[in-house]
Nucleic acid binder design. Structure first.
Lengths: 210, 210
DNA sequence: CGTGTTGTTGGACGTTTGCGCAATATCGTC
DNA sequence: GACGATATTGCGCAAACGTCCAACAACACG
């Protein structure tokens, strides 16, 4: 198995374990057992467990980011692109991925590699939303005095709401998260209520269940 | 030392350690060493480490809650009470307390006692803000079609922004968090821009540095 | 065929974890 | 002053942790 392939295999195995036990309590031996190999092998490819976890978290966050970015790029309209952003953010299948975010934010203070990765990816997500807002403003579809601030606010709102869903389970319903965040976005962008709502974005509605 | 005093002492010691190392990596022996006693003593008062951490987290979150509640109750005006809520939320001294929240949200999936405590306190914070909004609406100082939703949105926004400050350090500045959240609150409550801003809430401005 | 490079193994090392338990110390009550 | 309950100790236990390393296997290249 090629070095690159092996690294991917380690990352995949790490994610399989992290999905079950959480990022924070994923150990070298867990990953080795998941791959069916020895634990020493992991340290042959990664300098420390910190870097393994950071690499694993990065692939998930980056994949989701690219997935959202391509979904947005196929939207026929700047406003629909923003609507797609919100709908792809709170998908039910992503609950475990958001738990990874929670773990990363918490572990950031203890694991340097996780911190830099988490920070970089968070900035990338903000940049994606900010750019979409700027496009909407430039094409006259929206008005927004400070796209950078609006993107941070909307992203943080999504994070804070999703956090309640994932960490506390029944406190909030997922549908409300999307609806509330979308409504805030309409206010931020000077749009009429409902301008970003369900109609016309059927391609992503499948992720909005329950 | 009375049993109740001893429990408090354990909780205090746990917090002293958690402040340094984070909740997730606070161990029985750390707490015992902090108290200058044996580790067995902790298990004599708490059934498991999970409950120790939950109790410690609870006292901090509850103290902060009561602190905010009393500060709000002394405000001369419903709107000022809301402004106080935002200013007391993002105080610099509370960075370590917010790291406790991050740890609690992350650990919620693994530690049952932490989960129920975190959930209960989060609901209490939302209730505090919702009540303040309802008072402002009832006295005609604000308009808000759905105080429950608005409270969740504003609280989640604060959480999401504070998260960036605490977990990633330099990504956002603390002053911006308060200003951005306050601006969102003004929009949610149908207020003029600046209605909740600095002027007139000097009693809490000390916590807004940097 | 020999030889060096590299992937991989399996386990040792030292530490740390949560928890339990027998022994000891302390103290209120008769 | 003796006694019973309870607070507290100090350590043992088994398991788990990250890291490291000597040894074996596989293969490319001379």
């Amino acid at each position: 198995m090629s070095p690159e392939r092996r690294r991917e295999a380690i990352v995949d195995a790490t994610l399989a374990v992290a999905r079950r036990k959480g990022l924070a309590s994923t150990t070298v031996r867990d990953v080795a057992a998941e791959m069916g190999t020895s634990s020493g092998l992991i340290h042959h490819y990664f300098p420390s467990m910190d870097h393994v976890l950071a690499a694993a978290f990065e692939t998930v966050a980056r994949d989701d980011l690219e997935q959202s970015a391509t979904a947005m790029s196929t939207a026929r309209d700047p406003l629909r692109a923003i609507a797609v952003f919100f709908r792809t953010y709170a998908r039910a299948e992503k609950d475990w991925a958001f738990q990874l975010w929670l773990d990363a934010w918490s572990e950031a203070s203890r694991r340097p590699a996780v911190r830099t990765t988490s920070r970089r990816l968070n900035l990338a997500w903000q940049a994606l939303l900010q750019q979409a807002i700027e496009v909407a403003v430039a094409t006259g579809r929206a008005t927004c005095p400070d796209p950078r601030a609006a993107a941070w606010r909307l992203l943080s709102l999504l994070d804070g709401l999703a956090l309640q869903v994932v960490a506390h389970g029944t406190t909030l319903r997922r549908g409300q998260v999307v609806r509330w965040a979308t409504a805030s976005a309409e206010a931020e962008l000077g749009l009429a209520p409902g301008a970003l709502s369900t109609r016309g974005v059927a391609e992503t509605a499948a992720g909005d269940r329950a």
